[in-house]
Amino acid sequence: MGNQPIAFVLLALAMGALIGKFSLKGISLGSTAGTLFVGVILSMTAEAAYAITYSIPGILSSFMLLLFMYALGLKVGPEFFSGLRKGGLPFVGVGLIVFVLNWVICYFGAAWAGLAPGYATGLISGSYTKRRS
């Protein structure tokens, strides 16, 4: 299995689903947490005991992300518009305020600092990242 990362993923899915079905005093991990738990344990064991590291192919990673987004959309989609009607207006307002203030601060900040107009674009792009040192 050292050369087959897809077999590793399928093994983690199968074992995680089995572990997720067991419950102890009414508490269970569920299939999602069980799969995550098994995947972490298998990868730690493979690296520590056999010096095997896995790199999932990009196409599989993209497919799994799309599958997750589809499943999430099926679950949350019907509730999205009803949630917007009930209390979504304040969230939309906060989002718009943050967006507009970011542009205003970056534009006038670049002008105040005497930077060329192209730097304001970099400031805006960089301000939306969450990198912490």
Rank of each mutant, 00 (worst) to 15 (best):
G58L: 12
M15E: 05
P57C: 10
T32E: 05
Y50G: 09
G16A: 05
T35Q: 10
A14F: 00
L60F: 08
G58W: 03
E47H: 06
P57G: 08
L24K: 03
L18M: 14
I56K: 00
M44E: 15
V38H: 01
V38L: 06
I59N: 14
S55Y: 02
G34E: 03
L24W: 10
K25M: 14
S62A: 07
L36T: 12
T35N: 04
G39A: 14
F22E: 14
G16H: 01
A33T: 09
G30S: 10
L29D: 04
S43H: 12
I59Q: 15
M15F: 10
L11Q: 08
A33I: 05
S31G: 08
V40T: 11
T45Y: 11
I59P: 06
S28Q: 12
S43A: 15
A17H: 07
S55Q: 08
I56P: 00
A14P: 10
M15S: 09
L18Y: 06
T32L: 07
L36S: 04
S28Y: 06
S31M: 06
F22H: 14
L11M: 10
L29V: 02
A51S: 07
E47A: 12
A33N: 08
G16N: 02
A14Y: 00
A12C: 13
T35F: 02
T45L: 09
V40G: 07
T45G: 08
K21W: 02
M15W: 04
M44H: 11
S43L: 12
V40W: 09
M15C: 13
A12F: 02
A49M: 00
I19T: 13
K25S: 15
T32Q: 03
A49S: 06
I59G: 14
S28E: 11
G26P: 05
G20D: 10
L13R: 02
L13Y: 06
F37D: 03
S43W: 13
M15A: 14
F37I: 08
L36F: 15
I56G: 00
I27A: 12
I27R: 11
A49I: 00
S61Y: 03
A48C: 02
S23N: 12
I27K: 10
S55H: 08
A49L: 00
M44D: 15
A51L: 03
G39Y: 04
L18V: 12
A49H: 00
I52V: 13
L29G: 04
S55G: 07
K25T: 13
T32H: 01
A12D: 05
G26W: 09
I41V: 14
G39C: 10
L60S: 09
L42V: 12
A46P: 01
G26V: 14
A46L: 05
S28R: 11
A33D: 01
S23Y: 02
V40K: 06
M44S: 15
F22M: 15
A51G: 04
M15G: 03
S55T: 09
L42W: 13
I59E: 15
A17V: 14
S43K: 12
A14S: 14
A17M: 13
S31W: 04
I27S: 10
A33M: 05
G39T: 06
A17T: 13
P57K: 03
G30Y: 00
S55M: 03
A33Y: 00
Y50T: 07
P57H: 07
I56V: 05
V40M: 11
A48D: 12
G58I: 08
L60P: 02
S61C: 05
G39K: 04
T35P: 06
K25F: 13
E47V: 07
